[in-house]
Amino acid sequence: MPEGDTVWLTAHRLHDALAGGVLTRFDLRVPRFATADLTGRAVRDVTPRGKHLLTRFEGGLTLHSHLRMDGAWRVFPAGARWTGGPAHQIRAVLGTEAATAVGYRLPVLELLRTGEEDRVVGHLGPDLLGPDWDATTAVDRLRADPARSLGDALLDQRNLAGIGNVYRCELVFLAGVTPWLPVGELPGETLPRLVATARRLLMANRTTFERRTVAGTGRRGPLLHVYGRAGQPCPRCGRPVRVTPYRGPGPALSGDERITYWCPGCQRGPGPDDAPR
């Protein structure tokens, strides 16, 4: 599931493969930009911003992409066979003499002026894996709407950038509260600790696609506490982990974000039937 750590690693792999090279192939397979041609231009850098990717080119242009649920960028040596999926799922091809980056199933793909990047990422809160990370600002933004459910607030990228549904489920479990608990009802220093935990977990997972939030279980143990473990025993209390559609205030969620994994034994607060619709 692409979240901030996956996007960070993807950006760095793309940067290592393409930055400094000159484009020998540029192909955007979306109607709006199908005729765009940047061959002959150098790739300046590839930068992650929350769950967004910014690939910058010579001449002040940026390719903005977002992976959402199942998008992916794959990097191949020049001339190698592409193995990231069927050809009809390819949305972008960026090639240099050394490597080719192929974007599969990308739901967001647009070419814009580098000076206009704020149009697509300027709304984001502090980036958990970015140089602008500011825990105090993130906590203040989360607290700004005390009646909002914690799960909904954590998914709002305007508060802090990089958390998706996997980390939402894991973070509220580690905090010992349900995602339907209003932010204003969190006790004491729970929210600053939760934000610090989010930063620590994303930092620890940013160099691998095998995400882990459970420490010390070895290769055979579970990687995650509750996410994807419906019906299995909670690692703390042993009660079966529940899965339920996410019901909270705010904009409609899509796909995986509609699903919540949680433990009714360990996580205090309102359940799904008590949450605002």
Rank of each mutant, 00 (worst) to 15 (best):
M1W: 05
P2G: 00
P2R: 08
E3H: 00
E3Y: 00
L9S: 14
A11C: 15
H12V: 00
H12R: 15
G20T: 06
G21I: 02
T24A: 14
F26A: 08
D27N: 08
R32Y: 08
V46T: 09
K51Q: 00
E58K: 12
E58T: 08
G60H: 13
G60S: 13
R68S: 07
R68K: 12
D70S: 15
W73F: 05
W82C: 10
W82T: 15
P86F: 04
Q89W: 11
L94W: 06
E97N: 12
Y104G: 07
P107S: 04
L109W: 08
T114S: 15
E116S: 15
R119A: 12
V121K: 04
P126A: 14
P126M: 08
W133N: 08
A135Q: 07
R141D: 13
D145G: 06
A147W: 06
R148H: 09
L150M: 11
D152C: 01
D152A: 15
A161H: 02
A161G: 00
N165S: 11
N165P: 09
Y167C: 03
L174R: 05
T178A: 11
P179K: 01
L181V: 12
P182V: 01
G184T: 10
P187R: 11
A196K: 02
R200W: 01
L201A: 01
M203I: 14
A215S: 12
T217C: 05
T217A: 13
G218K: 06
R220E: 15
V226I: 07
Y227K: 06
Y227N: 04
R229C: 14
R229H: 10
A230T: 08
A230Y: 03
G231E: 09
Q232G: 10
P233D: 02
P233M: 08
P235V: 09
P240V: 01
R242Q: 12
Y246M: 13
G248Q: 01
P249Y: 04
L253H: 13
R258Y: 04
T260N: 11
C263V: 13
C263R: 03
G269Q: 05
P270M: 12
A275P: 06
